[in-house]
């Protein structure tokens, strides 16, 4: 399938964690903490030893750098870079939620509605209502079609 920019894997995060499985974060293991961190369910600050023990200071800095792009993400972890976007509308039509809201979009026809997830305005796609994304609860589906078919790499999902 399409080539995408390198994604953060839980293992990369795990390798920089204390790896002691101390459970202070509430998860049974450091790898579970790393996985949930990338899903946006917890923050780095939820790992007390990382901040408490100076021997993890260097790793903490690396983790902060590694996770910085996530700060720009919306809650489902979708980032749309308007500088890269060309307004092709692939995301508008390929998104199953957009199509379920406005069936005409299934035929490729543009419809101006502000209750959609994606809408192309002035030559650029915009994210309007991300809470409808299937990546949100209750579905929590790892749907990535918008990212997969984005020509320009403007859409990135963490």
């Amino acid at each position: 399938m399409s080539e995408k920019s390198k994604k953060l894997s839980p293992l990369e995060v795990y390798n920089l964690l204390p790896k002691t499985n101390c459970k202070e974060c509430g998860y049974p293991s450091c790898i579970a903490f790393a996985t949930n961190l990338l899903l946006g369910k917890n923050k780095l600050e939820d790992c007390p030893p990382l901040f408490r023990d100076p021997k993890y200071a260097a790793n903490l800095e690396k983790l902060k750098t590694l996770l910085k792009p996530m700060e720009e993400m919306a809650e489902t972890g979708i980032k749309l870079d308007p500088d890269k976007c060309t307004g092709c509308g692939n995301c508008v039509v390929v998104c199953p939620v957009n199509v379920s809201i406005e069936p005409k979009i299934a035929k490729g026809i543009g419809v101006k509605r502000f209750d959609l997830i994606f809408l192309v305005e002035n030559g650029k796609a915009k994210i309007l209502d991300l809470e409808k994304c299937r990546r949100f609860p209750p579905e929590r589906i790892n749907c990535r079609v918008c990212e997969e078919y984005c020509y320009s790499g403007a859409i990135e999902i963490f």
Binding site: G87, G110, V120, N122, G123
Partner: peptide, 9 residues
């Protein structure tokens, strides 16, 4: 302008 790509815009 809605639904227009950047070339058209």
């Amino acid at each position: 302008l809605y639904h227009i790509c950047m070339h058209g815009y």
